[in-house]
């Protein structure tokens, strides 16, 4: 009996530092956000921040930008990540190098590589234009970061490049949990490669794909680094995501409380998203 108590105390002692720092830096801000959003300059103002939010044109447009950004980049990352993982799961000469290289974008600083992308997309001296010109795909250099649709393409590309490894690793882990014998059994049953993929690989990867989907969607929603560097939200706010608007609201317009209300809105949005996904898929959990 007493052993259990001392065990409890020991465990508590081990966990306490992490607990404390997490409570301070992760939990407290979320709660404080809630409080701040109902205040203005230290006075309680009820829902006025939120009502201003709903009338804010710019907020609406950044929401749409962010939504479009997620809807385009996340599926691309999933497909690309799945493909890379399938390739990297096989044995071939140079696999170690290929795996290292595929992991690389995740390991490199987003902002620094965004600067690299900026140089690549430079309208006059950039190599992207150069390649396209040489391949005769365009007739004159395009202002990649200067035109709204093109700039959107650039930020999606930079994000997909950076974040695909995240998906690749998760799916690789999932692939490794599939017993080889299942493939052998279905081969003896007569399945060709596509059928093997459809009947074994894909269904058994569902948990991994789900994890990747949830995490990537939320992370994509909060994208900041690469867009700040590449376009700063321009041209004309066409590539501005929510996080950039929040940042501006805090550091340029110094409207703390308004920013807090934006954060609260996003937070509730996340919770709903996670809830929906969880409810949809939790009924079809796969276990061995």
């Amino acid at each position: 009996m007493s052993k259990n108590l001392s065990e409890q105390r020991f465990g508590l002692f081990l966990i306490l530092p992490s607990f404390f720092i997490l409570a301070l830096i992760a939990l407290y801000p979320i709660l404080r956000n809630l409080v701040l959003s109902f205040m203005e300059q230290g006075r309680f103002v009820g829902f006025s921040n939120f009502s201003a939010l709903f009338q804010d044109e710019r907020f609406r447009s950044v929401l749409i930008n962010t939504a479009i950004f997620c809807l385009i980049s996340v599926p691309l990352e999933l497909i690309l990540g799945l493909t890379f993982a399938l390739v990297l799961h096989q044995k071939f000469f140079g696999r170690g190098f290929a795996r290292a290289v595929s992991f690389l974008p995740w390991a490199l600083p987003t902002a620094v590589m965004a600067v690299a992308w900026k140089w690549i997309f430079n309208d006059t001296y950039g190599v992207f234009n150069d390649i396209l010109l040489r391949l005769h795909l365009i007739k004159e250099p395009l202002a990649w970061l200067g035109r709204p649709n093109l700039a959107f393409f650039c930020i999606v590309l930079a994000e997909v490049w950076k974040c695909t490894p995240f998906v690749t690793v998760i799916i690789l882990a999932g692939l490794q949990t599939i017993p080889l014998e299942l493939y052998e059994a279905i081969r003896v049953d007569g399945a060709n490669s596509w059928q093997r993929f459809r009947l074994i690989t894909l269904p058994l990867l569902k948990p991994a794909i789900l994890v990747a989907l949830i995490f990537r969607s939320i992370q994509a929603f909060g994208v900041f680094d690469s867009i700040w560097v590449l376009t700063g939200g321009g041209p004309g706010g066409s590539t501005e995501p929510i996080s950039l608007y929040i940042y501006d609201t805090v550091f340029r317009y110094l409207k703390f409380n308004y920013a807090a209300s934006m954060v609260c809105f996003s937070f509730i949005f996340f919770l709903l998203f996670i809830l929906i996904i969880y409810l949809t898929f939790s009924r079809r959990q796969i276990e061995y």
Partner: peptide, 30 residues
């Protein structure tokens, strides 16, 4: 060890890894 605070800790960890940085920015700056 089986601790009562295990779930609490796991909850906090989930908070920290699930949400993007921008959520925490304002209060942290404060």
């Amino acid at each position: 060890l089986k601790l009562k605070f295990k779930t609490a800790l796991q909850f906090l960890l989930l908070l920290a890894c699930l949400f993007p940085q921008i959520i925490f920015l304002v209060p942290l700056y404060e």
